[in-house]
Design a protein around this nucleic acid. Structure first.
Lengths: 230, 230
DNA sequence: ATATAATAGACCGACGGTCGGTCTAATGCT
DNA sequence: AGCATTAGACCGACCGTCGGTCTATTATAT
């Protein structure tokens, strides 16, 4: 193979790009190191010059994805013009807007990453994202608690639970996607929205807000996300 | 090797026993099929006569573990002498009693299964347990709702969230175990109990019970579990 | 006797990872 | 400027391991 030299930053970014594309297309286990280096156009040796193992590549990728995602969401959590409840609502509506914008791509990715045989991939990304998100959410909860908006005995523990509970959407989304693909868009959209609504109520209750304060679903989100044209 | 013939039930049970012991000792990935058949004392051919793949073995094992665990817990969820709140409290105290009884063995198992590189193992077992537990919990919630004890808009969705939220203890327990092993039993026990207390409050709030109604920790559980002699 | 289930274990291909070595570009030295 | 040295990016043949397959053989049931 022709020898091409690039700066380490470019190379490792390219490796991560390729890995991300392949992992999101076929899953982690079904993507071989050889697949990755073929697409990235370099050798085995070069690959292992950058990453100690396939596993290490996954971790680096998870960290990058987590960092990028949270950079998009962080401003909503810190918006100084809003109170704590407003920030939470902004977070939900904002992430829904993002989801709809990127719906065609996201749907494909979710369909792969949420498959049971890809737990490892999913879990690594979630773990990385969680680590970054936990202090942010905890700070928001503490702030809201001090402002008297919430009633949260232990911001970190509650942030932890809030982040944990959202993971029901791995399964819910997976089922909705399969159902939508099977033709029943109405039913799928309804399942998704209903679960989001209930999730919103759960958040309300955990924070001792009146049911319905947190708006975890925009009306029509289910159809907008599941039915968005590619 | 000497040819030994056993009934299929015995054989597959033995295979599952070995697999469980090895998976819980070294994890799933680090246990090879050859390890399993060596311990179980049979050949590759026999192994693949009983299980289509290593993966299939894992699923069967997860199903068995889930079935056994839930058989122990089910009576508490159905106890006709108690109301809904009482049943939930029995469930928590009962599973804590079980944990303390089996503490030495459980600690070893948890220390392995909760390790990040063993997510697959953990997740398969949890998935199987969840599938069995979901309808039971949902029924309890519906019953409690009808009795006026809880206020639960969607028993299935709430049961789902309740089951999801408990998974924070994968990480919490893992950390507590490591800390206790590192010598700081007091701190570890405190972390564990505090998190269980907060978890109880979370359950209260989700079900619209007054904070403190659900008793998710028995006092002294942390020390009893983490410090129980082998 | 014959079919079928159970068992054995040699064998296979694919995979992650290693290793000795090559090539290039920057740096130091005269 | 011109040459030597060096760091490290890069190559790809090779290796051990592992999950899984295949054929042969033995036990059991009818």
């Amino acid at each position: 193979m022709a020898r091409v030299i690039k700066s380490p930053e470019v190379r490792s970014a390219e490796l991560l790009d390729c890995a991300q594309r392949l992992f999101f297309q076929r899953g982690y286990d079904d993507t071989t190191v050889n697949d990755i280096i073929r697409e990235a156009g370099l050798s085995k040796g070069a690959f292992y010059h950058y990453f100690a193992s396939k596993e290490a590549l996954l971790e680096a990728l998870a960290a990058r994805i987590a960092r990028e995602s949270l950079t998009e969401l962080e401003p909503m959590l810190e918006d100084p013009s809003l109170d704590a409840v407003g920030r939470l609502n902004t977070l939900f509506s904002g992430s829904q807007r993002l989801n709809v914008e990127l719906a065609p791509q996201l749907r494909k990715t979710f369909a792969v990453v949420f498959r049971p045989e890809n737990v490892v991939l999913f879990h690594r990304i979630d773990e990385a994202a969680r680590e970054l998100a936990l202090p942010m959410i905890a700070r928001l909860l503490r702030k809201g608690s001090e402002e008297g908006a919430f009633e949260v005995p232990d911001p970190i523990a509650f942030a932890d639970m809030l982040l944990q509970i959202r993971l029901i959407f791995r399964d819910v989304m997976h089922r909705a996607l399969r159902q939508a693909e099977g033709g029943d868009l109405e039913e799928a959209a309804h399942l998704l929205e209903e679960r989001l609504r209930i999730y919103g109520i759960a958040v309300d209750r955990l924070l001792k807000l009146p049911d319905g304060t947190i708006e975890a679903v925009e009306p029509g989100f289910g159809r907008a996300f599941l039915g968005a044209q590619s």
